[in-house]
Deep mutational scan, measured.
Amino acid sequence: EIHIRTNGEEQARKVYKMLAKRNYDVKIEQHNGQWVVTAS
């Protein structure tokens, strides 16, 4: 499982799309105001 911390919604969405293209199961979560993308 991969966790990627991003500094904002826009970046989180870019990372989300990139990983989704590679057939990862991707989730975006917010932790303490930080956007974290989780891929498995």
Rank of each mutant, 00 (worst) to 15 (best):
E1P: 11
E1D: 09
E1W: 15
I2D: 02
I2R: 04
I2W: 14
I2A: 03
I2L: 08
H3G: 03
I4G: 01
I4Q: 02
R5I: 14
R5L: 12
R5G: 03
T6Y: 10
T6N: 03
N7Q: 10
G8K: 12
G8H: 13
G8T: 15
G8Y: 13
E9W: 14
E9Q: 07
E9T: 04
E10S: 11
Q11I: 10
Q11T: 08
Q11L: 10
A12Q: 01
R13F: 07
R13A: 05
R13N: 06
R13P: 00
K14M: 10
K14I: 10
K14D: 05
V15Q: 02
V15F: 11
V15H: 03
V15C: 15
V15R: 03
V15D: 01
V15M: 08
V15A: 05
V15I: 15
Y16H: 05
Y16V: 06
Y16P: 00
Y16E: 04
Y16W: 06
Y16S: 07
K17R: 12
K17W: 13
M18L: 10
L19Y: 06
L19H: 01
L19V: 01
A20D: 03
A20Q: 13
A20F: 08
A20H: 06
K21L: 12
K21P: 01
K21I: 10
K21E: 12
R22P: 01
N23L: 09
N23I: 04
Y24D: 03
Y24L: 09
D25G: 06
D25E: 11
D25I: 14
D25S: 11
V26P: 05
K27S: 07
K27V: 07
K27I: 07
I28L: 07
I28Y: 03
I28G: 00
E29I: 11
E29G: 07
E29D: 06
Q30I: 12
Q30D: 05
Q30N: 12
Q30P: 04
Q30V: 13
H31L: 13
H31P: 02
H31C: 13
H31G: 04
N32V: 04
N32M: 08
N32W: 05
N32R: 06
N32I: 03
G33I: 02
G33L: 04
Q34T: 11
Q34P: 01
W35Y: 04
W35T: 01
W35A: 01
W35L: 01
W35F: 05
W35R: 00
V36E: 04
V36M: 08
V36Q: 05
V37T: 01
V37L: 04
V37G: 00
T38G: 02
T38N: 03
T38W: 09
A39S: 05
A39F: 14
A39H: 05
A39K: 04
S40V: 11
